[in-house]
Simulated assay, not measured.
Amino acid sequence: MTSLSDSRTGRFAAALRAAAQEALSFWLPIACAGCGALDVPLCPACRAQLAARPSTRRLPGGEAVLCALPFSGVVARCVRALKEEGRTGLARDLAPALAAVLTAVPPTVLVTTVPTRAAAFRRRGFVVVELLVRRAGRRPVRVLRLRRVPRDQRGLDREERRRNLAGALVARGVRGRAVVVVDDVVTTGATLAEAMRALRAAGAGPVRAVALAHTPSRRGSGGEQQMIPT
Rank of each mutant, 00 (worst) to 15 (best):
residue 147 R to P: 00
residue 168 A to Y: 03
residue 151 R to P: 01
residue 193 A to I: 00
residue 191 T to P: 02
residue 165 L to D: 01
residue 180 V to F: 05
residue 155 G to A: 10
residue 199 L to C: 11
residue 154 R to G: 08
residue 172 R to M: 00
residue 177 R to C: 15
residue 155 G to L: 10
residue 192 L to H: 04
residue 178 A to Q: 14
residue 157 D to W: 08
residue 172 R to L: 02
residue 172 R to T: 12
residue 181 V to Q: 10
residue 182 V to M: 07
residue 165 L to T: 00
residue 186 V to P: 06
residue 159 E to I: 05
residue 152 D to H: 12
residue 169 L to T: 00
residue 131 L to P: 00
residue 162 R to V: 14
residue 198 A to H: 09
residue 142 R to N: 12
residue 169 L to P: 00
residue 130 E to A: 14
residue 186 V to T: 14
residue 183 D to M: 11
residue 176 G to Q: 12
residue 197 R to F: 03
residue 147 R to T: 07
residue 157 D to F: 07
residue 170 V to I: 15
residue 166 A to M: 01
residue 193 A to E: 15
residue 168 A to K: 03
residue 183 D to Q: 09
residue 182 V to G: 07
residue 204 A to S: 11
residue 133 V to L: 10
residue 200 R to L: 10
residue 152 D to M: 03
residue 137 G to D: 12
residue 191 T to I: 09
residue 182 V to H: 06
residue 191 T to D: 03
residue 167 G to Q: 05
residue 160 E to V: 01
residue 194 E to I: 04
residue 165 L to V: 08
residue 200 R to D: 05
residue 143 V to I: 15
residue 199 L to R: 02
residue 201 A to P: 02
residue 173 G to D: 12
residue 200 R to S: 14
residue 150 P to E: 06
residue 133 V to R: 02
residue 190 A to G: 12
residue 157 D to Q: 06
residue 201 A to W: 02
residue 138 R to G: 07
residue 190 A to N: 05
residue 156 L to R: 14
residue 136 A to N: 11
residue 186 V to K: 02
residue 204 A to P: 07
